[in-house]
Design a binder for these strands. Structure first.
Lengths: 227, 227
DNA sequence: GACGAATTGGACAAGCCTGTCTAAATTTGT
DNA sequence: ACAAATTTAGACAGGCTTGTCCAATTCGTC
């Protein structure tokens, strides 16, 4: 009844469940204590598992750390692409749509558990594992920015925006939308829903102030109507 | 001959020099290895000093860490205020002046040794020493933003800018000007002079695109003339 | 040159952590 | 219910680190 479609000979259930549990606990402890300060006993306790089980599953501390980062990277990237897919390509109200998009991106990818943990691990241990984080950089931000730049280019082509370099615009969009959250991020805090919304609103307004198409009076009028 | 004006009874020279040397080495090691991973022997070796001397000067590891953070905070804040004092209040060429200001701020306060180290320590250990970093937050970013907001308000009053909330504009200015450097910062790298200049240029252009006063054709003309 | 303070190198105890090993207990599939 | 695999608790060695102590040495000053 439990394993449904997969009649594998592998131990089908709580084996894998424990692996996940260990990786989750390890992510939490590595973030809180740093790699050197992280204690396997503590990870095991937090995962509700014996220390030996941690070693059985992951070999040693370093392999466990790598598994944690890969896991976080994968989940974060998945979330990011899912969110990018919701970009307003044919906007009805560009300002509102961009704000909603920014809030989604923040809440689902940057402020959630995985996002915060991954960011902190990158900042703390990025220099020690260059290839590991280079991989993240290419798969994550690299593609994110390209994808977003392509969307902006499309909006520009459709006459909604007036943009010089779409890649620059994409990076500036992120920077603006998070402008008011940076200190909170720096100290590892979680911004409230309201802070996220305000930062996104202010950021998008400034973004459109710089990039909204001005040659067509109709477009400008529409943008201003919602201010 | 060495101590010139101060005939104090205190050991006048290399005593203090060694204290500084130890704090500098400690900053470097704490950043590279994290608090838990930092090794007093390594700090002593990197400072060119015996381990005992480290303990003589600073008591224990935690006190040493606090001394490091206070030291970095103080120097960084001094640099930041010195740079803010160079803000172009009566600009001749607003775009060029703001770009130069942003580059100075970046090079002298954010990308230099102290700035990078302090940022990393805040990110890594900020949650463990709340009062220590709360102090930094108030004295540093808090005042920086206020000061910058006041300058922007003045520019707006003088008719150079069209700004809603000066505080928001100040935060967005920093965000825009660093938009292209975030990944580099995240991985602990040092951007090249050219990257800093490009990010500042793109950021200031977008900033002015959003906030440059548009009602006076002359101002707009002036701004565009240098694009 | 002589004095006192600071520094040094090294030994040292105590504690903590990793990673291994074992035998017993538990869970899982059949 | 049985057999195999997994998990557990605990002990354990080995290594590393912090912080202390001390005798010998160096440094700065008079």
């Amino acid at each position: 009844m439990k394993h449904g479609v997969s009649p594998d000979t592998f131990p089908p259930r709580s084996h894998e469940a424990k692996r996940v549990s260990v990786v989750d606990a390890a992510a939490s402890v590595f973030c809180r204590e740093g790699y050197a300060g992280a204690n396997i006993d503590l990870i095991a306790a937090e995962a509700g598992v014996s220390r030996q089980t941690v070693y059985n599953h992951h070999g040693d501390k370093e392999k466990l750390f790598v598994a944690v980062v890969r896991d976080l990277t994968e989940r974060c990237n998945a979330g990011i692409f899912a969110t990018i897919a919701s970009f307003p390509d044919q906007p009805t109200d560009l300002e509102a749509d961009l704000i909603a998009f920014a809030v989604r991106m923040n809440r689902n990818c940057i402020c959630n558990r995985d996002g915060r943990f991954l960011r902190k691990l990158i900042q703390a241990e990025g220099e020690r594992y260059p290839e590991l984080f280079a991989e993240w950089r290419e798969q994550g931000p690299g593609r994110t920015w390209s994808a977003l730049a392509a969307r902006f280019a499309r909006l520009a082509f459709a006459g909604h925006l007036s943009i010089g370099d779409p890649d620059v615009a994409a990076r500036q969009f992120f920077a603006l939308v998070n402008a008011e959250l940076q200190i909170t991020f720096m100290l590892g805090g979680v911004p409230t829903e309201e802070e996220v919304l305000r930062s996104a609103t202010n950021g998008v307004r400034t973004f459109l102030g710089a990039f909204a198409r001005r040659k067509s009076p109709a477009a400008k009028q529409a943008a201003l109507a919602h201010a």
